[in-house]
Design a protein around this nucleic acid. Structure first.
Lengths: 241, 241
DNA sequence: GGCAACTGTTGACATTTATCAAGTGAATGG
DNA sequence: CCATTCACTTGATAAATGTCAACAGTTGCC
């Protein structure tokens, strides 16, 4: 089973090997080490809504999302919250891998997804041999850490309405900066990411109408940028991500 | 100025050099590299309520708290929230240092504190030369990251009453596990750390009385452990920190 | 001692957010 | 095509949390 799912780096039609190599995490490391990671890895296709990882399980693989999208979420006492959305091409659960610790979040595919799994042990082995790779892991972890800190500030310092307004401004910037853009996620998931209920999100959209926000399905239009920014007060130390 | 505050590793009466060496971050690295860090560093005493770091500033130093205590906090739009408390002996703002990025949090002394400052550039230089040190930084960052993730889960999945209940159980465990223990922070700060107002905290304490929690100043007694745990439902994937 | 200054508490009230229930509208599938 | 499902919305209401003001208890200081 392992052999026939193993990644063949040469000649594989849909191999993402080149793009993976260009990920910040892998771009500077020695080629021999990269090849050794790739050889140990395997790639698998998953249908939508499959739980890839359950929080509490031991972290046997570093995951690299090649295509599709993955929801990182967490549960407690019959409640559930979306922590983040992973989009190609990027890795996830690096921290659990390097600490050999149980996953703190669960992961499920949101759509059909292609994922490369690199055994955690190989990642740790190569880490010990390759200074460039070690440096890249440090950078990645520090960036992730700072991302979560920003998220905490967002949650603790802002109301849900303010979080939505700033989210819209970020999403607008990410999608080119035009007046009109698309939400990348279902509203239900967006609500969970922002730490609110769907109902509250629905009302929050209406409450932003006076600031020039129009919603048509998942298409958002920001009629008056200044107006919305005046309300949202975006801040690079929270919103640059 | 630099010279007379510089740390003299031999013979300095209150030198914490040995304890610093034993920090996970420094314990495995080569002695020459450790000495080089220490030589580049300097140590300073600060009075209470001094703002050591302002969020947004560039991260020139890795800080090591030797004695006293430091509050990491953040502000936005005239609101402020406590993100964490640093207690000796540990480092802070490692992530900003390794990324050469602006601080995301401000830091102020809570009491008279002694702090070692290691120039960020030296940390990065030694990082590149010492695999053990690199490994330790990765471990530390991954641990910090996981800590913040746990905190986010706490914030998003629990009510303020549940957060308090679980905080009390954690604090009890940290201080030996006895029925009676002390809060380490002012209630005002505790409220901010838990993401609530002082008034709400005050009422939350009263609301925990039916579960056997008694408050006398900063002395807490948990009369019935099972009762409180039944309400708090502590979970290692959130509360082990 | 007695007066500030400070921390924490309490009450009344407002705001924010969640919950529950019902409804709309678009997409899906036989 | 209609029926069903699903995502979202809306309304009514409740619960959680914040705000403001007043007050109590401590601490520190002259």
């Amino acid at each position: 089973m392992r052999t026939h799912t193993q990644l063949v780096t040469l000649g594989m039609p849909d191999s993402h090997s080149k793009e993976i190599r260009e990920l910040h995490l892998f771009s500077e490391m020695e080629d021999a080490h990269f090849q050794s990671l790739i050889r140990a890895a395997y790639v698998q296709n998953f249908p939508p809504q499959i739980e890839l990882i359950t929080e509490g399980d031991s972290s046997d693989f570093l995951h690299v999302l090649l295509s599709g999208s993955v929801d990182l979420f967490s549960s407690w006492n019959d409640r559930e919250t979306s922590m983040a959305t992973v989009r190609p091409i990027s890795t996830f659960i690096l921290a659990a891998t390097v600490r050999e610790a149980p996953y703190l979040m669960s992961a499920r595919t949101m759509e059909k997804s292609r994922i490369m799994l690199i055994p955690s042990q190989n990642v740790r082995d190569v880490f010990d041999q390759d200074g460039q790779f070690a440096r890249a892991i440090v950078d990645e972890l520090a960036m992730c850490y700072r991302g979560v800190i920003k998220n905490t500030k967002d949650l603790k310092l802002r109301t849900s309405l303010e979080r939505l307004a700033n989210y819209l401004l970020r999403q607008q910037a990410r999608s080119g900066g035009g007046e009109t853009f698309m939400l990348e996620a279902e509203k239900r998931r967006l609500a969970s990411v922002l730490g609110m209920t769907s109902e509250n999100l629905s009302r929050a959209f209406k409450a932003l109408r006076p600031y020039g926000v129009t919603v048509k399905g998942s298409q958002i239009t920001i009629a008056n940028q200044q107006d919305l920014e005046g309300f949202a007060k975006p801040n690079p130390l929270i919103d640059n991500r």
